[in-house]
């Protein structure tokens, strides 16, 4: 019986496996890595006389919501299985891997870190995700068009038709006083119509945002919110600079609008706090925004009650100008939407 012993099998596996196998010590220095790992990872900065550190290659773990972060780093845990991590490769790209990290030698505190490429799986997932998202965006767009079309039809067209009929009838009124009465009514109808059209246009995008800036536009919007939903907005604005880049102003306006809509729809509150403040030092200049309610709240990880597009839209808008948005909420503890945008 010429049974190959386990050690030589393991050694063969280590050297020939298409899986990257890396042994690291407790501080993250690479003790051994197999040929596949060595050929995949970028070793240009590698000084062969020294230990190489895993952090030179690692670009962070994948967290929910698409963020990449070093919090909860695997190095400080005994065992994590099947998590996603980003590594820098020889080609200079940052590539996702599915990884396992297990402490195999507790005495010397050596762990084995195995990595398998994930790019293909991710790509299909991404396409699926994109499809779903596109569908929902199309739905939302269609819904919005339907609303505007209904607004125009029910409001503007009907009212115009009324005035038109009234005016046709004016021709047949002989009595001067009766004519005056009827004309006053037509005038009223027209003035209501004017308000109606103005309202539609403000709801779509307030002109004050372009003409007067974020503070004025928000104040008008909060008044509208109060009348529309019976919710009062407590607004604190401590920003010295009055005007910003139009993109930044739009992003701020839309994020705050969306966050208040969410509070109005789901939080069951009659008051929302909004604050905008400036964070300024030599290097950075940020606007910090907070929208907070003391309402029902929700589990942040849960499937959204609505389309989920709102929260997604907020973070997309923020990242389009290099900013961030976070949501902090728990059932019964209210909801806080906050973040900052560089200006």
């Amino acid at each position: 019986m010429n049974e190959p012993n386990l050690t030589s099998l393991l050694e063969a596996m280590f050297h020939h496996s298409k899986e990257m196998i890396i042994f690291v010590n407790k501080s993250g220095e690479i003790v051994h890595m197999n040929a596949h790992a060595a050929s995949t990872l970028d070793e240009t900065d590698y000084d062969r006389s020294q230990f190489q550190h895993i952090c030179n290659h690692c670009q962070g773990m994948y967290m929910s919501g698409g963020r990449v972060a070093c919090s909860n780093c695997y190095l400080y845990q005994d065992e994590i299985v099947s998590f996603q991590v980003y590594m820098r490769t020889r080609e200079g790209e940052v590539v996702p891997f599915i990884a396992n990290f297990q402490r195999v030698d507790p005495e010397n505190e050596i762990s084995v870190f195995t990595l398998n490429p994930l790019a293909e799986q991710l790509k299909t997932q991404e396409i699926e995700h994109q499809k779903r998202l596109t569908q929902r965006i199309i739905q939302a767009q269609e819904g919005e068009r339907k609303r505007i079309s209904r607004d125009l039809h029910d409001g503007v067209t009907q009212e115009l038709l009324n005035v038109l009929l009234e005016m046709r009838l004016l021709k047949y009124v002989d009595d001067r006083e009766a004519l005056n009465d009827k004309m006053v009514k037509s005038e009223e109808s027209l003035s209501h119509l004017l308000d109606y059209v103005r309202n539609i246009s403000v709801e779509l995008r307030p002109a004050s945002l372009d003409d007067l800036g974020i503070e004025a536009a928000l104040k008008t919007h909060f008044k509208w919110i109060e009348r529309q939903y019976g919710i009062s907005v407590d607004f604190s604005f401590t920003v010295e600079q009055k005007r910003f880049n139009p993109e930044v102003e739009t992003v701020l306006y839309r994020i705050i609008q969306e966050a208040i809509f969410n509070a109005a729809k789901y939080a069951e509150v009659d008051c929302v706090d909004v604050s905008l403040e400036e964070m300024k030092n030599e290097e950075t200049h940020h606007i910090k925004f907070t929208i907070e309610d003391a309402g029902l709240g929700f589990h942040v990880g849960d499937t959204p009650v609505g389309t989920g597009l709102g929260l997604f839209g907020m973070s997309e808008r923020a990242s389009s100008v290099g900013g961030t948005v976070s949501v902090d909420s728990a059932p019964g503890r209210g909801t806080k939407v906050f973040g900052s945008i560089p200006v």
């Binding site: 109606y196 309202n199 009348r227 939903y229 919710i231």
Partner: peptide
């Protein structure tokens, strides 16, 4: 008391 809706 706060609610005020546009016509329509």
């Amino acid at each position: 008391k706060r609610i005020a809706l546009p016509r329509g």
